[in-house]
């Protein structure tokens, strides 16, 4: 049954992809990109990747759509018709596609349990997690414990990207605490924004700390946190959001999350283990792992949330005054 839904979703994704490329209005393309993201997120649910689905929904349909919109607001909505003939790119694309399809002929079939991917490392993770780490969500245990180095690297990439955006665009403080006339009209939005803002933050905390037991973890929670503050900024104006979480605080938080992560690693070295070996953090290895994973996830969450929110601030603060 699931294969049927999988098939239909893939076809819908393909159609959406084609029409995104054909759209000449960039805003329309952005809206379709958001739908595309939601569709791929539901595909991930069908394919059992619940953690990935959570991330993709929060990032693809949420923040990346918002960033695209902010960029369009700063640049232009119209795409000029291409002057070059699209023949050459089309030929390149078709030849590459053919080569890749030829390559898939040797691949193990979809869902085959004997595929090489499933034979090495992964069975060990699935088998050892309950005993060694003691948490049900294997994705979290692999992310935070078995492959903690990788995650540190990913976090460093996010940190660097945040720093890069800040360097490229710079940051301008918004004077005043006034709400622009556009917001004044949206009374209902403000009431609902006030109602939902704490709920989203609460939910982000749940995702953060429930990540050991269900889908969730630092990456997802960080993005949801940032989305909550973005909702606040949308409903009450950027100036008010920046009074709530000042930009300087965000800069500190970005570094703090990274330092927390590295600090846990160094602490485990000081206690006689290897870098990021959580077993030594407590008397009993399993509770050491628990403590280590919670701290690491917290570090990830703090950095991701503050980088996302900082990127949003930076993009939006470039908008001309009064246009916000």
């Amino acid at each position: 049954m699931e294969i049927l839904i999988d098939t239909i979703l893939l076809v819908l994704l393909m159609i959406t992809g084609f029409s995104i490329v054909r759209m000449r209005s960039l805003l329309a393309a952005t809206m379709l990109t958001s739908i595309y993201s939601l569709l791929s997120a539901s595909l991930f649910v069908v394919l059992d990747a619940v953690d990935v689905a959570l991330t993709e929904a929060a990032i693809g349909a949420g923040i990346s759509t918002i960033l695209l919109l902010a960029t369009i607001a700063l640049t232009t909505d119209r795409e000029k018709p291409p002057q070059r003939t699209p023949m050459l790119p089309l030929i390149v694309v078709i030849i590459t596609g053919m080569a890749l399809i030829y390559g898939t002929l040797d691949m193990p079939h979809f869902g085959n349990p004997q595929a090489p991917v499933h034979l090495h490392v992964a069975p060990a993770y699935l088998h050892d997690t309950p005993g060694e780490i003691g948490i049900p969500n294997v994705v979290t245990s692999v992310l935070a414990s078995y492959r903690g180095y990788d995650t540190l690297g990913e976090l460093a990439v996010i940190f660097t990207a945040g720093a890069g955006v800040l360097t490229l665009l710079g940051y301008r403080t918004r004077g005043g605490n006034s709400m622009d006339p556009g917001i004044r009209k949206l009374l209902i939005l403000r009431v609902i924004g006030k109602l939902f803002f704490p709920l989203i933050l609460l939910f982000a905390l749940y995702v953060q700390f429930h990540g050991d037991y269900g889908p969730g973890g630092g990456f997802q929670a960080g993005v949801i946190f940032a989305t909550g503050f973005i909702l606040y900024a949308l409903a009450f104006g950027l100036g008010n959001a920046q009074r709530l979480i000042p930009h300087q605080l965000l800069r500190i938080m970005v570094a703090f999350g990274m330092l927390l992560y590295i600090g846990v690693g160094i602490e485990s070295m000081l206690l006689g283990g290897k870098f990021l070996e959580y077993n030594v953090l407590a008397d009993d290895p399993v509770s050491g792992q628990h403590l280590g994973i919670i701290l690491i996830e917290l570090g990830v969450g703090i950095t991701v949330a503050s980088v996302m929110l900082m990127i949003y601030y930076v993009f939006r603060s470039r908008q001309p005054e009064g246009d916000l």
Partner: peptide, 23 residues
Amino acid sequence: FLDIALVYVLISFVSTIAVLRVC
């Protein structure tokens, strides 16, 4: 796995509002 559905509700709301407010 209803957590995922919950996230979707919130995200699709925020992104709808964002289109109207940002643009």
